[in-house]
Design a protein around this nucleic acid. Structure first.
Lengths: 336, 336
DNA sequence: TTGAAAGCGCTAACAG
DNA sequence: CTGTTAGCGCTTTCAA
């Protein structure tokens, strides 16, 4: 395999100059620079990550932590991160964080401490106090997408505002009997709970409390199940705010199967901007997950390359996209 | 940061013994071993990936190449790979291979040649001749999931047999007017084409050629569109074999929207074993993508750890799962 | 702007 | 079974 010495010899300079040229650090004359580039490219030289990492302490690789790999939202954020990182010549090392405790500690105690990465990006992971401490002890810049923890630099959507937007949309259409699909325990601090709490607050503001909160596990199947249950009630809701598009799709199918028309008998709004929502005409609060990944990668790169401190907290945009799944309640439905 | 010297000092042995103990290579007395393990764990020592990689040439990291990150099938295979690799203490470095030529060469010419990984796993990627050559020139073990190229060690589903199973199922139910959703160009060599060719062959064997092949891009939306078109025809099919569950879902929705009952008016069979297929009662040919990822990772680890040659070609299982979306054609439908 | 040389933190002969 | 030691292939002072 061709090494830095081969390049130095071919370019008739020292290895130091080759290193300076290729890394862009330190002064190099235009002439030397040109010869080095020419030699490197004609020899097909690529810097060894191990050697460079050992000598410099920089690895040009970012660790990404995700609690789920196979849900659309996570896969899409990952795609965004990957795109931006690869464009910058950085590698992406993926760590799956399950709910299995030994598996998690392995990640924090060993995997992330191998000096293989320059920074850590977490995506919607709920970290325990000890885990946050471990993460900070590693001494790498950490950027958390979708975390509310003030101890972490983070990129977050204002979930309360997002929930308000969705809820207001339904209220403004005239709905009063609105149910939320997600979690029912608003004392939790994670994203699902923030959405539920935002919904409950907005409903209370409209004089409609207690708010109806149904538990569902964010899958289409469970969104269907939960909706089917809701629709059986005598005072069934005229509208549903689902905390994810996948659940919203389930709600849509449940309504159809019960012979209810969407949006005439039931309005549905989801969250995410899932590719299926456009296809199904589902009103949703898009949170642009692809862009979230890109921005997070971007911010991490800026931190690494320019030595900037990661911004303590960045607000991510969201947008209510109104499509055919929401409308005013049918006349008979709007009467109490 | 604590280094190998600290551990050696604490355990009162040489760094060589620490290295031998922690890597499991070379003889170490039980007593020394115990002291080293104790010292390492109490000091919280973790081997530096760069230093270890530079000295040994092994990185304990696998590169994974994927053309798509945000489709369910790929995300699920990735999940399987990740699970198995992390359990073995290996890291996973993810490379997204787009269709953009400069981006692709960057991966083959630079990213994969940084000596950051010990092996390469590709998932359903179509490699050009030059790309295969570049990959082989790197000198790393390569294992290709879902590739038909004989130059690569591979783990593959027998796509012809899979297509036959799906097609036979429909034929056995009595269907004659069957359409395929996927690609129409059976001269291609990729997986979609293999499925289409398998379908066409089985139809021909039943005396039903030419087979009807409709193009769709493997998304639900396009499956819907293609199906809607097929259903408009005077001699509309009584059954559809979709090359992916996502397209099958689209077909299902298209049938419903046209007022056709599934399976009475239209039978549908998909491929993959998508989580939605169980929920929707969709008959599918499950190919166990999670297990595919695990097996591939497993095979790669075996190659790396035991120095085994990667098996030239391994057959992956698939299984026809019959659910409610397929049935014999309605009486009037079965007459020509 | 350049080169010489001293590491970076580990592994693997090799000798004992 | 263990320690000594020479690298692994770069980066980065430092002096010129």
């Amino acid at each position: 395999m061709v090494g830095i010495d081969d390049v130095a010899r071919a370019a008739q300079v020292s290895t130091a100059t080759v290193s300076r040229t290729l890394s862009g650090r330190g002064p190099v004359s235009a002439a030397a620079r040109e010869r080095v580039l020419e030699a490197a490219s004609s020899l097909g030289y690529v810097v060894s990550a191990s050697a460079s990492g050992l000598a410099s302490g920089r690895t040009r690789s970012i660790g990404v932590l995700m609690p789920l790999l196979d849900r659309w939202f996570f896969a899409t954020v990952l795609h965004g991160i990957s795109t931006r990182l690869q464009a910058a010549g950085y590698d992406l090392t993926l760590y799956h964080l399950s709910s299995d405790e030994p598996q998690r500690s392995e990640v924090f105690e060993t995997a992330l401490r191998r000096r293989r990465i320059d920074g850590v990006l977490t995506v919607s992971v709920e970290l325990g106090d000890d885990e946050i401490a471990q993460l900070q002890a590693i001494g790498l810049p950490v950027l958390a997408i979708g975390s509310a923890d003030p101890r972490l630099a983070r990129l977050t959507v204002d979930e309360a505002a997002l929930a308000t937007a969705a809820t207001r949309h339904l209220l403004d259409l005239g709905h009063r009997r609105i149910a939320h699909l997600g979690v029912s325990d608003t004392r939790r601090s994670d994203i699902p709970a923030q959405r539920a709490a935002g919904f409950a607050r907005e409903m209370a503001r409209a004089g409609l409390s207690p708010a109806r909160l149904a538990d569902a596990d964010f899958t289409t199947a469970d969104g269907y199940r939960a909706t089917a249950t809701l629709l059986k009630a005598a005072d069934r809701p005229t509208a549903i705010f689902a905390a994810s598009d996948e659940m919203a799709v389930g709600a849509l199918l449940a309504a159809r199967d019960r012979g209810l028309s969407v949006p005439d008998d039931l309005s549905i709004v989801g969250v995410d901007g899932h590719e299926l929502s456009a296809f199904l005409g589902l009103t949703t609060v898009d949170q642009f997950p692809l862009a979230q990944g890109q921005r997070a990668a971007e911010a991490m790169l800026a931190t690494l390359e320019n030595g900037e401190r990661p911004p303590a907290s960045v607000d991510l945009p969201f947008e209510l996209v109104v499509r055919g799944s929401t409308a005013p309640p049918a006349a008979e439905e709007s009467r109490p």
